[in-house]
Amino acid sequence: MIQITALHKYYGSVHALDGLDMTVEAGTVYGFLGPNGAGKTTALRILTGLARPTAGRASVAGVDLVADGRVLSRRVGYLPEEPAFYPWMTPSELLDHLGRLHGLSSAERSRQTRELLDLVHMAEAGKRRIGGFSRGMRQRLGLAAALVHNPEVLLLDEPVSALDPLGRKEILDLIEDLRDQCTVLMSSHILADVERVCGVVGIIARGRMIIQSPREKLMESYARPAFEFETVDAASALRWADWLKVQPWAAAVRLEKVVVRITVNDIARARQELLASAVAQEIPLRRFEEVRPSLEDIFLQLTDRETTL
């Protein structure tokens, strides 16, 4: 659906994009991850036609970007990081206006306006001036505005980063619901959000793609299983950590006061021996947990490697 090849974008001497390659298959929710300033917004702006690449190629739904921007805008919906509106308009008027631009009939527009306002929980605010809206309301309205024409591709730039936990959950739920309707490309520097909704993850740093893979596969190949213990006193934690370090199935042991975190090579053996050894050595445990490998571990691992190269 989206194909980017060797995309470069220079702002003076700053290389915002430095040969970015990316493929987004139709029907996926693609999480575009990277630290701030990695080039995520630049890539999205090029995909919407707001910025022009210095070099390289990009196409959406088979349409070459540089060639025809107008065809594209009918098929792509875009939610910028900070959506901006005319303060004197109301949400209903905005959606109606956008519907007109997309050539919807009067009946289609009023239906679409009603449905979208319901979707983003703004039905009761539909007739109020946008001027006084909060950040969260703008974000939701921005999402509605991006969906007016039922686009095939939806580009979301940090859709939840500026929101509080509740607002964040609402938007992520909405994005999850959109999965069946369109291809979603969502940028974020917050891993937990991407982990929740995205089937495919691409990690970008300094304008280049580091890795691109289905989320599950990425987890399997990069994240090692881990366990976390909390002991009652620091002395026994230290004693046990020393013993664990030399076991053949242990990959790494990290000790933080009373908490021991151990990543293992052999999960089956670890499950058997960990608790047994705790009992044998009389370690007083307060908590024992098998920790799910997180995208954060992988992300840090990969971006670390990239920066030390």
């Binding site: 107008r70 005319y86 631009l101």
Partner: peptide, 14 residues
């Protein structure tokens, strides 16, 4: 300045 131009021009509008 406000960003409304960018917002509107990602819709079909020359």
């Amino acid at each position: 300045e406000r960003g409304t131009a960018a917002m509107m021009l990602t819709h079909p509008l020359s």
